[in-house]
Design a protein around this nucleic acid. Structure first.
Lengths: 224, 224
DNA sequence: GCACCTGTTATGCAACTGTATAATTAGCCC
DNA sequence: GGGCTAATTATACAGTTGCATAACAGGTGC
């Protein structure tokens, strides 16, 4: 099966290759896995297709992962971690008020590159495994809790900043509701993007969060 | 492969069968498909397993469906229709106020049998196909719009009942937000059921909807 | 009770699947 | 520059997959 990088040369030559340093190859394989799930759906993913996309032969996969299932689990972990990183990067800015950070948190979740149909396809594929595969369930749980904990802390700061009591039970309740709004709008907006202007989606998210918290998220210090 | 209902008898006897009337067999096959997706995940579903569960031989599937993909699509349509029916049945009650009906609508979405991990597994499996399969995208769109249209109408009635202006744009915006809250809480509560008391989830849903609408959903006529 | 239609079974096939294994070779250390 | 190690290729294998086809038989109409 000669390709551009490996011309047939002589009939009996082996394909040339390079040894990838560090865990570069591992990353490539995970990335290829995610691409496959995105484009073909989890049900159609095969180790051969993954290897093809990563530019290696299929035997190599078993050198890096115990099994195909294990590789898919790692891919799940990777994609969730990526989303968390993206949202954190967008919302953690020095010197900003809690309100401003919460607003950015919401906006980051509902805008590019998080609100993306490929990402949603990955997410749904993996979520569909939670009931079937205990390892996937554990990964889900881990990331859900981290997400909500972060949101809960942010809500607490917002309450304090507004001079309101920040009782833990209240923060948790609010965080659960806000988490729901974010997830739901992310789904709606990503699955039917032509039905929402991007800014509208973010605006609705912020409005809904304001309603739930019972206070404005506008940053008066900055916005005059 | 003899089983209980078809003992080997003589070595050369054919398995007995009955001709199912109407579309009974079709329904059986769809139900079997849904069971398979629920228990094994979409990626592991095979026509043989489906046939086994439906109590027929695998060749029969092609007699009812053009292909496995087509059968999965029909199963998607069926499961979404079922959820819609369940929610409608719970919220359409004669003589109730719009507020009461909206409250029931929310409760029906967040309680059994809609908030169920098996149902969520089905839903996620199918959603993961929306980006890959145009037919699945069409089915999703159809049901999403029906759901939101229903919710939009209900919100309009609630506004009117409360003596507020029910402008279409406002109703739509509110419906989108409420839809998001319902979807999000449904996800959270179903994926991590041990973290929420059932009544709590419904209570949070109703609270959030009340915040978004800016009015109470308590039915004063009935509740004293 | 016979014939006919079609729902149903039985069987086969070629392609594909995940994984195991052995042979190769790239790159590093001395 | 000559090994040594392990990353990588190549190949094989047994089981599975969706689908096609032909034979069969349940039920209906007469």
């Amino acid at each position: 099966m000669p390709d551009a990088t490996n011309p047939p040369a002589s009939v009996l030559t082996r394909r040339t290759f390079r040894r990838a340093p560090g865990d570069e190859r591992r990353q490539d394989l995970i990335r290829a896995t995610l691409d496959c799930v995105t484009e073909m759906g989890l049900h159609a993913v095969t180790v051969r297709e993954i290897a093809l996309r990563a530019g290696v032969t299929n035997g190599l996969i078993r050198h890096y992962f115990d099994s195909k299932d294990r590789m898919v689990q790692e891919a799940y972990r990777a994609t969730m971690g990526e989303m968390t990183t993206l949202v954190k990067a967008a919302s953690i800015i020095a010197g900003a008020t809690a309100r401003e950070r919460l607003r950015r948190f919401v906006a980051a979740n509902l805008g590019a590159p998080v609100a993306d149909i490929k990402r949603l396809t990955l997410w749904a594929s993996f979520i569909s495994m939670v009931h079937v595969d205990a390892a996937m369930a554990a990964i889900h749980r881990e990331h859900y809790l981290a997400f909500r904990r972060e949101l809960e802390a942010l809500v607490g700061e917002v309450f304090v900043e507004a001079g309101l009591p920040a009782r833990k039970a209240n923060c948790r309740r609010a965080a659960i509701k806000i988490n729901a709004v974010i997830d739901g709008l992310w789904l709606e907006g990503t699955l039917a993007p032509e039905m929402f202007a991007k800014k509208d989606l973010v605006a609705m998210g912020i409005e809904a969060v304001e309603s739930i918290l019972g206070l404005s998220l506008r940053d008066f210090r900055k916005e005059k």
